[in-house]
Design a protein around this nucleic acid. Structure first.
Lengths: 362, 362
DNA sequence: CATTGGAACTGAGACGTCTCATTTTCGCAC
DNA sequence: GTGCGAAAATGAGACGTCTCAGTTCCAATG
């Protein structure tokens, strides 16, 4: 068994209270006692039992984050930012994976609460399922911040990007290339950010005077098969095939690309393509995909800041609704409709990437 | 404050011991009492305080894993497997990121121990630094299993692939394509698996009767700049440029590719390339990279199994040295030297992938 | 030397849970 | 009604830490 403060006390010839004071540094201790205690710590290779400490102090200095799938590159990047902010403030971050299942998500939330983390970040896996009532039973006044995916009717702190603005910008880019038949493929529209991105799509069309066509809105789930069905139906059976496709998130975007490649359609040869999120090592592989790049690290970082504010100030603090600016990085996958007619486009070099930033804050 | 068992007891009109028995199910409780307690649990929305429980039982049912960089796709895949195995056995997995720093790695290990996790998985960030002495002070008879990266002199449980066999197989593939000037770029050779992979490289050369050239061994660190220096020097200043390059791990491999692309060399046009680990969504993007594919999920899964065995049986159990079979997936980046001379190779379809398996166990 | 005030130290108690030695309850046989 | 054994319920105590009211120590002062 690991050594305890009591054993330290015996070895150092002081009381357990003094040992505690040396370790926590909360009270003045004579230099002589401090040295004796420090020696004993070395000798026994003592490490404080954080469990006992937490029980006593009712503080764990631990935060949790639940993501739908840690193997999607987007999430580890967010985790990095969150972990960094947490560490800077002396907090520890526990990472959990809900594996895209609402049930597992409930379990993970319950687990974090049972572990008495002081607050949590959540990128929800629940689309429709996460009603405000359900949410309340999960969290009942427990500090929580939503990231990226945000259930529609939820009044909760959140951190995400300027979804509609970023989508509008991506669309403007496609429109600027000359596209007028632009399809959009979204995730579940029960998520507010998916709604917002779709709104940005419509706004961009409207501003450009392009009529909105319901038949070009393919939504939506995060499921590979469902996305494939939507895209293949849409692309192949449409009276006139859209010349460009916009995906409102990386999961759906990658699923869409895969499904279309599997039926022989590729970008930019057969259609232009733009998506939220970078879906691979985009600086390197071909085709480079034009994407709406979210400030993942900052999102995680800010989310922890927001969470800690909520923890410290309780319900009295105002709701945080943080919208960070996103950026559009133009790569090969978006081309002119003319080029699509047949002329093969030459892959551009990395230096050919262009960035545009969206900087409206909500 | 959250409700406690004592409050439950009062509400249900039973003793705290009975409440505990209902919750833990350790002792028989009359149906009447059980119902009253369950009702109280519902009413107060009670959740057991795992902290207090852990303090009392000295069991946390929690494992930890420390990885060097969670944003490298290889690690989340391992984590997935580990998490799965842990959950199946009622354990909880805490994920920590050492950010490639040996110092932070020490901190993370200390943190896990202070949190009283029951054991840990480690993909070490420390190359040279992790001496057996240092290791002992970190872990001193604390259950730990090393994954993938394995310090050379460490006598510890580990799970990795058949490194030398897999490397030999990758080399055989290149040799089979007609290459004789094959360079190898490795990570730190203080890691046993890097040594093994280099050994596989030499064995393959030997079996094929190709003389080993020290000048073609570029090793090695995980640092982008260092790798770039080695590769660029090697490729550009060599008396005769190697026609193929083999990387012993994904981090180094991606760094090598990037550095060579940045000086205008690309695969498979200018050199064939094969690497350990998949470095992106390889089924989709071009050029597809011929890779040694490790069974990441299984590695995580098995590592947890090994760890739990160690936890349950203590030092009495024999050392586990698990070597799983790896697979070589052939894609576009490996081509014949003849083709390199000028003829552009046509990218093959996904269906063109071929797998070969390496199935020797150590 | 006696007094005093402040610094240093002490050790019991509480945090929420589980455990276990006791005690109580209950059903049944006589 | 009594006795008995088994089943059920009880509640004090321990886990390792921090806290805090109380005690001891000591140097300075009169």
């Amino acid at each position: 068994m690991p050594p305890t403060q009591k054993e330290l006390a015996k070895l150092a010839g002081v009381s357990s209270g003094t040992v505690s004071n040396v370790i926590s540094g909360s009270t003045k201790v004579s230099e002589r006692s401090r040295q004796k205690v420090l020696e004993a710590i070395k000798e026994l290779n003592y490490q404080p039992n954080l469990i006992a400490r937490s029980l006593r102090t009712n503080r764990t200095r631990t935060l949790g984050i639940v993501v739908p799938d840690i193997t999607i590159p987007f999430f580890p990047k967010i985790i990095r930012g969150a972990e960094c902010a947490a560490r800077e403030r002396g907090y520890f971050l526990i990472v959990l994976d809900s594996e895209g299942s609402p049930d597992r998500e409930s379990d993970m939330i319950a687990l974090l609460r049972a572990q008495r983390v002081e607050g949590m970040l959540l990128v929800t896996a629940s689309g429709e399922e996460l009603t405000p009532e359900r949410w309340d039973t999960f969290t009942s006044s427990f500090p929580a911040v939503c990231l990226d995916r945000l259930p529609a009717d939820l009044n909760v702190d959140f951190v995400c990007v300027d979804d509609s603005g970023a989508a509008e910008m991506a669309l403007s880019h496609l429109i600027g290339m000359g596209h007028t038949q632009i399809a959009v493929v979204t995730g579940p529209l029960t998520l507010r950010n998916e709604q917002e991105r779709l709104r940005g799509y419509r706004q961009a069309l409207q501003k450009a005077g392009i009529p909105f066509q319901r038949a070009l809105v393919w939504s939506g789930s995060f499921e590979q098969e469902e996305v494939a069905r939507l895209c293949q139906n849409g692309m192949l059976r449409a009276s006139s095939m859209p010349s460009a496709l916009f995906a409102t998130n990386g999961v759906t975007g990658l699923a869409a690309l895969r499904s279309l490649y599997s039926v022989g359609l590729s970008t930019p040869k057969d259609f232009s393509f733009t998506t939220f999120d970078e879906i691979t090592a985009e600086d390197f592989f071909r085709p480079g995909i034009t994407s709406v790049v979210q400030p993942t690290f900052d999102m995680g970082y800010r989310a922890v800041e927001v969470l800690l504010d909520r923890i410290e100030n309780g319900e009295s603090a105002p709701r945080h609704r943080v919208r960070l600016p996103a950026t559009v990085t133009v790569r090969e996958s978006s081309s002119t409709p003319v080029a699509l007619a047949g002329a093969k486009t030459k892959p551009s070099k990395r230096s050919g990437e262009r960035k545009q930033s969206v900087d409206r804050r909500g």
